[in-house]
Design a protein around this nucleic acid. Sequence first.
DNA 1: TAAAAGTAGTTCGGCGCCGAACCAAAGTCA
DNA 2: TGACTTTGGTTCGGCGCCGAACTACTTTTA
Lengths: 160, 160
Amino acid sequence: MAERMESPEGILDLISRIRETSSEILRRELEKNGIEGVVPAHGKIIFYLFREERPVPLSELVKASGRVKSTITGMTATLEKHGYLIRTGGFEDKRNVLVELTPKGRALRELFNDISIRVLDQIYIGIDRPEQEALTDSLSHIDRNLKDALALYIAKENIQ
Amino acid sequence: MAERMESPEGILDLISRIRETSSEILRRELEKNGIEGVVPAHGKIIFYLFREERPVPLSELVKASGRVKSTITGMTATLEKHGYLIRTGGFEDKRNVLVELTPKGRALRELFNDISIRVLDQIYIGIDRPEQEALTDSLSHIDRNLKDALALYIAKENIQ
DNA sequence: TAAAAGTAGTTCGGCGCCGAACCAAAGTCA
DNA sequence: TGACTTTGGTTCGGCGCCGAACTACTTTTA
């Protein structure tokens, strides 16, 4: 086995830091624009609702966000409390709780798009298109590697 | 401005997912080895204590971890509760709370090293050394870009 | 069609994580 | 030396996030 790269900083540290700093920047952008009660963690939910433009059951948000349902219960409660969405009971299936954006929630759309463009521009300063593509290819590769590895753990666990 | 890469998946999603999956794998590795009460978030603290091998004030852990002091108060309390470290009052400066690993805490060292090697190997399957280096270079570049961007926000804020 | 199994959400407890308020010990300085 | 500020930590409240337990509907199935 070849000697491992004792990098001055492991790739996972690098990735954690990038994620944290970018979240921090997003947080500040939201704050700067007077948006209260929304944090980056809500992004998956809100973007999903932007796309769907219809009342959506919580279970869909669970899938779309990768979070556990109790987390989604809490997050939608927070977003409802701040007036970005409303939750109503389902009709065909009474177990469903349907979630949809309010006008205040829909109004975030443009701002969010602007912000993600701005942050993406910041991220890629001094990195040309080919390098960007090489980077996302490598990251996709790693993403797949980790998913495969995790699948093994899960498979083993299901055998027990 | 060139058209932006409307990637099937933004780089930040990719990075978030990698971080999450790798944390999940670390969590399972710890669990598999019967380690209770330790989660990936404790890594920075524990590795710092591995390196120092002396009673360390909380303030150092704050710096080393990048977390806020109230977070460190909580995390060291958790780790103490599970017997990995002890907190004692300082002597020269009575405000200091000194933290040091117990034998049970020091015993984690080898395991942690093994685990990080294993995960790193998983991550880099099918990615050769030059690609690894290009990847970490790009990520370091982005890390710097984001830090610079964040510094601007902070500077602006301090002017207000 | 009644019982069993599955599905959608909520609630609860616990921890990470933050910011604000607070306390106590040091350091400063008039 | 006594007041003022700084510094090291803790506490508190709030939210993200999870897993386990629970409720209430639906669907299956015997």
